[in-house]
Design a binder for these strands. Structure first.
Lengths: 376, 376
DNA sequence: GCGCGGCATGGAACCGGTTCCATGACGAAC
DNA sequence: GTTCGTCATGGAACCGGTTCCATGCCGCGC
């Protein structure tokens, strides 16, 4: 039988007539090896078809060459680009990426506990997941480097966006089109928890709502509590919420949904109710997931792919031993006008629309409790 | 400092006053350990906060507890559910899942070569990716178990669907609604390769086209080559292709797109051209991705999540040492009628629509070169 | 009372690398 | 010619578990 037993480093050493240390140096490209020796060893490696054991290397070096990424609700469209961005960077840096998908709190706790185990992962990236103090402490004590994406964890490098500013931008854009009665559709914590879903999106929904309110206040526009509808996450629920808004005696002329998925539910409600978009109703989403472009949905673009890539880059920096400062990294947002928004029927305004369309309004961005930083 | 050095098994043994072998037995729940000893060791483990080294365990046992999943174009909506299904099963079975996203042939080759390395992965799942003979041979020789999803690889367990039958079902459904001029929009290999994209979707597009043709022949319907349009993958391209169909002097009353993403492009073209769906044009997709439901797109449902889960289950079976027979596992398809299809305007027919709507037509399924098997 | 089987146990060998230290050869400087 | 430094090299120790084998103790049967 040709491959009775895979060759190990000692076999190569014997075949090349050298010591194991020399073979190791050749493999790792160490400097102090005579050229002729290197060639001899190289030949022996090829002749025996030798491949180093990934496990043995990792064990000797004392650290696995794999990082784990914990994501909630993998099927949710906004997390996929984040994951893809992280995978691209990690792959390029030579790391294996262990992906942990999490749909329930139990799964989250299970994976987080497991990942703090010894020699489990060189580092961990968590996406959109809140950690309990105990869990964060577990990471600290186990010495497993941690970075967060779309979630603030004290003492941990995190890559986020300013959702409050985003809420202001979306609402400000609608205001600039002349809309004054602007509805909001988003999700609640309570409903989300009751449905067994994690807090994915909740925190951001809450902050985007805050931005919505700030923009309305700043513009002196109508702030009718009846125009704010919140319920469990998901397009189907959003559709029901939007239907409620459209059934009002004096319905809004525009709706800002806290996410593109929910905005798609709003579009469905409009379609079902015979309300023309954007003729009678403007709809604004958030995230700029792939479907948004396909459906012509106006939205706030969030750098999803880039957020994953940046998180991964920062983790790699930590793994190299670099200090990552500042901990907070904030990616910018951008208004993306498409065909779901239009000036309010019969209204004036729409003067600043062209301006707002292609860049984030720095004046608006500057308002509020959160800093509006750039990259790094 | 409290944690100067993580405890290892020898420390536990010393603390408990036993040998390392005994500690190992306690950890792994071996039978021959006196109860009092077990308790002592257990206490020592907890007192020292001992956690076994994942790497050392894997190295000793001779196999990593991780499997790799190679997927093309992670951002493509149809692969995400497949991945999620596989992750769910693997996680439940206690495996780490290393995800390799592949966007170019070079990346594919790189990952496949790496994964055959020694102690790299306990097994590998490839999704929608063709392997060269050399690559398949590499897996065989390296002894790395391999299973395929949505791709036939000789000698390797694979979980697939009958795309030809699916093409027949989609076209047959449109025929049952009375449509006779039915267009096809799909992708080509040439265009895909030119764009640097992999063969993702191409092979299935080709087979779905074959089913389309079979159904037309069987129904004695119009088979105009001008109604078949193929180009690079992606909704934007599909939109252009569909626009071409709609601009024909005698345009089709229905279009079958080889995938939901392309169908969404068709919908966009209809929208842009002022063609009412389903009033003037019926549109049929394939896959049943999440967006399809949101947009009311009629489609052929493929069990995407389940395909990933089944592939993972079969890999686990191989890893347990079970023989997996037969190699081919075929998942069923289903017509999902939504609001993008309607009886042809002014037509009779639509008699069998209700029937076809909820179940695959077994008569149609039986035709053609491929077997129509069930699960397992 | 003695021999034997079985069970709990200790510990060495092993998984397959990396790394550090000791060694020997060689050239340069004195 | 001798000594010292440098460089290539061999090989043992180590990473942290699992596993197998030898050992000792015990109880049982004769």
């Amino acid at each position: 039988m040709p491959p009775p037993r895979p060759a190990r480093i000692a076999d190569v050493a014997a075949a090349a007539g050298v010591g194991v240390g020399t073979v190791s140096r050749v493999i790792n490209g160490a400097a102090n090896v005579r050229e002729s020796t290197r060639a001899t060893v190289q030949q022996a490696i090829e002749r025996l078809g030798y491949r180093p054991s990934h496990l043995a290397v990792a064990l000797s070096r004392g650290t696995p060459r794999a990082v784990a990424i914990v994501v909630p609700h993998l099927t949710s469209p906004s997390v996929v680009p984040r994951l893809a961005g992280a995978l691209a960077v990690l792959s390029e840096q030579g790391y294996d990426s262990v992906v942990c998908n999490v749909d329930t709190p139990a799964q989250r706790d299970h994976h987080l506990a497991a990942l703090t185990g010894r020699h489990r992962a060189a580092g961990v990236i968590v996406v959109s997941l809140r950690l309990s103090a105990a869990q964060a402490e577990l990471f600290r004590r186990s010495g497993t480097p941690l970075v967060a994406i779309d979630m603030v964890i004290p003492g941990v490098p995190h890559t986020v966006t300013d959702d409050v500013a985003g809420g202001r931008m979306a609402t400000g854009y609608l205001l600039s089109l002349g809309h004054r009665k602007i509805g909001f559709v988003g999700d609640t914590m309570r409903g989300a928890a009751a449905a067994g879903r994690l807090l994915l999106g909740f925190a951001s929904s809450q902050r985007r709502l805050a931005g919505y309110r700030q923009a309305l206040v700043a513009a002196g526009a109508d702030q009718d509590p009846a125009l704010v509808r919140r319920g469990p996450h998901g397009p189907a629920n959003a559709e029901a919420l939007a239907a409620g808004l459209l059934a009002l005696p004096d319905p809004p002329t525009a709706i800002f949904a806290a996410s593109d998925r929910q905005a798609i539910g709003v579009l469905a409600a409009a379609d079902r109710g015979g309300v023309k978009v954007p003729g009678e109703l403007s709809v604004m989403g958030f995230d700029d997931i792939e479907s948004a472009a396909l459906m012509g949905l106006s939205t706030i673009r969030q750098q999803l792919w880039e957020s994953g890539a940046e998180g991964a880059r920062r983790l790699c920096a930590v793994l190299r031993g670099d200090r990552v400062v500042p901990l907070r990294q904030q990616l910018s947002l951008e208004v993306v006008p498409r065909s779901s928004t239009a000036p309010v029927p019969g209204g004036r305004a729409a003067r600043a629309a062209g301006h707002l369309a292609t860049t984030s309004d720095s004046a608006l961005t500057g308002i509020g409790p959160q800093d509006a930083g750039g990259h790094q």
